[in-house]
Design a protein around this nucleic acid. Structure first.
Lengths: 195, 195
DNA sequence: GTCTATAACGAGATAGAC
DNA sequence: GTCTATCTCGTTATAGAC
């Protein structure tokens, strides 16, 4: 029997929710335990019980974000569709984050890279490695069926697309201009389509 | 007669130098007056004499950075050359910043946008507006002589290029991988070349 | 123009009661 | 699991001597 009096999300989970949003909106160095505590209506000491240090909290935020992100990419694959449709789905994952006035978590952490706790540095790069690998797999499919014609190697083209989308997201968010992000992303994909 | 005993750069200028580098490397929220004071061998109080607040310092950093950046773009124009050559020169400006392990100042501040002092927010967006306008002028030239064939409008293509280069720079810096930045930028430009 | 000294506050983190 | 209370340190900023 499920305990019905259990809150929908426990404190640790709600803490991750708030921390994730604050990192995406403000960066790792521009939020504090006090910010989260105020929002959740608990004390800072409570938060330290769940995540002893800010570094531990940050690592947990990355882990959960990456888990969900790559689940979303797997869902795109599961849906099937052409390479071009999959790339559109990929862009839509980013657009949905941006609509929430958030930057990609790892794009934000890339900006903070030099000041991050050591334990957080590698996971950020792994996120990009895996993302580029997924996009490369989509480009492979498009090259195989003749629908896509990237300029350099598939891996280089994937890297260019992912890194570029991060930049479009970064600047579009500063303008609070989601449509411009979508136009830029569409242009980047069109550059890969055989014409 | 020039005063020869004058230091090569006065304190205010050296302060701007250090602050600029720290913003580009660490972000606006991850450096302090104490960091600059330690590096220059003066006290924090001395720094507050030159720039009363961190917001004033930040604004001065943006102003000087923008001045130099658009001088560099003007120099590219003065040199003449094809649209493609001018875009290569544009990318080289960014690559030289990246070689110093720095992010574009305004790209970094775009990440910090939500937490910036109000006085710094508009200048960051103006930097991007002006940069896109310059790139658009180069694309116009390329379209006019038939060497370039951007996918959408010239302005949209310029926006895509500038925002994408910011992202390539952001992620490449996290990897400390300048060659990958240059390959990505080359691909972005190639996508604009008539083939 | 630079200094010493300090104010006023917020950060991350811990001890120990409940 | 959450609280109160506290520690230590770093932050921006100012007053006033030199």
């Amino acid at each position: 029997m499920v305990e019905v009096s259990t809150p929908l999300r426990d404190t640790a989970t709600r803490m991750l929710d708030v921390a994730e949003r604050l990192v995406q909106q403000r960066g790792f160095n521009a939020f504090s335990y006090a910010d989260i505590a105020a929002e959740l209506g608990v004390t800072k000491a409570t938060l330290h019980y769940h995540f002893a240090s800010k570094a531990a909290l940050g690592s947990a935020v990355i882990d959960r974000y990456a888990l969900r992100f790559f689940e979303a990419l797997a869902a795109i694959d599961a849906r099937g569709g052409s390479a071009e449709e999959r790339l559109a789905g990929f862009v839509d994952v980013y657009a949905n984050v941006l609509r929430d006035q958030r930057m990609c978590l790892c794009g934000m952490l890339a900006a903070d890279q030099l000041t991050l706790p050591d334990s957080m540095k590698a996971p950020v790069l792994e996120f990009f490695d895996r993302t580029v690998a997924w996009v490369a797999s989509v480009l492979e499919r498009g090259v195989a069926d003749g629908s896509l014609a990237p300029i350099g190697s598939v891996t280089e083209a994937a890297k260019t697309l992912v890194w570029s989308i991060e930049g479009a997201m970064l600047v579009a968010r500063a303008y609070d201009d989601v449509p411009s992000f979508e136009r830029a992303a569409t242009q980047l994909i069109q550059a890969l389509v055989r014409r």
